[in-house]
Design a protein around this nucleic acid. Sequence first.
DNA 1: GTGATGACGGAAA
DNA 2: CTTTCCGCCATCA
Length: 95
Amino acid sequence: MKDRSVEDILAAVRQIPPGFVRTYGDLCPGAPRFTGTALRGIGDRVPWWRVVHADGTLAVGEEQRRRLEAEGVPFLNADPPRLDMRTARLPDGLP
DNA sequence: GTGATGACGGAAA
DNA sequence: CTTTCCGCCATCA
């Protein structure tokens, strides 16, 4: 599902089940930057905190880290707090 | 219609 | 392992 518009991206973000995350590149292959632009200024209309960088680092701030941690997302105790992508990342095709 | 912008990604050093 | 650089494409002014 190659999302090309903001609405499609927001829809995809809503499909992310609690405890898992998707990367910007997964939501918009070829234009990962646009994913961030789409999420910029949405509010809590969608679970934006479940969208992280491909390497597992967060994009917004510790605000996001707290929410993910609350959902039971596996975090690695590293200097820059980052997620364990091989477990937290949700494969494409799945809701 | 054109130009600039960006919650990124991947490669290179 | 870390840091730096370029490019991508949809939106906005």
